[in-house]
Nucleic acid binder design. Structure first.
Length: 120
DNA sequence: GGGTTGACCTGTG
DNA sequence: ACACAGGCCAACC
């Protein structure tokens, strides 16, 4: 037994959550972390995706940061790649930003129904 | 084995 | 909109 969690196991759990993000939707690092059972470990998700490699069939491009932006420098190759993949799925960018209210996959149907924001 | 980096988040001002 | 601080932790040197 190891004296701590095996990173590979953590990564697999994260990949599973990412793989569940529907096409045409996006999620954030923080939310994936929480969903994978590691609240406030957003960085862990970033690391897991970084070491993912290009062979895996994990939709890494559907994970963006909490500001609704792609976490690569604008104009860089990976930025362009991720953005093009998202736009191909119908995700729309407004001034380099994605409207998480519209494309964000974070609320379950129950949460939408019970949303305490408005009474309508 | 310690300091820095990074595909991060939230709160505060 | 921007800057800063605290949290969190694997990868890297």
């Amino acid at each position: 037994m190891t004296h701590r969690a095996v990173p590979a196991d953590i990564a697999e759990r994260i990949y599973k959550i990412v793989a569940a993000i529907p096409r045409g939707s996006v999620s954030t690092y923080g939310w994936v972390a929480e969903r994978a059972g590691f609240p406030r470990h957003a960085r862990l998700v970033g690391h897991a995706l970084r070491v993912l490699g290009s062979n895996r069939k994990v939709p890494w491009h559907r994970v963006i940061n909490a500001q609704g932006r792609i976490s690569f420098p604008r104009g860089s190759a990976p930025y362009t790649k991720q953005r093009r993949r998202l736009e191909e799925e119908g995700v729309r960018f407004v001034r380099g930003r994605i409207d998480l209210k519209r494309f964000g996959w974070r609320l379950t149907l129950d949460e939408l129904i019970w949303k305490p924001d408005q009474s309508g």
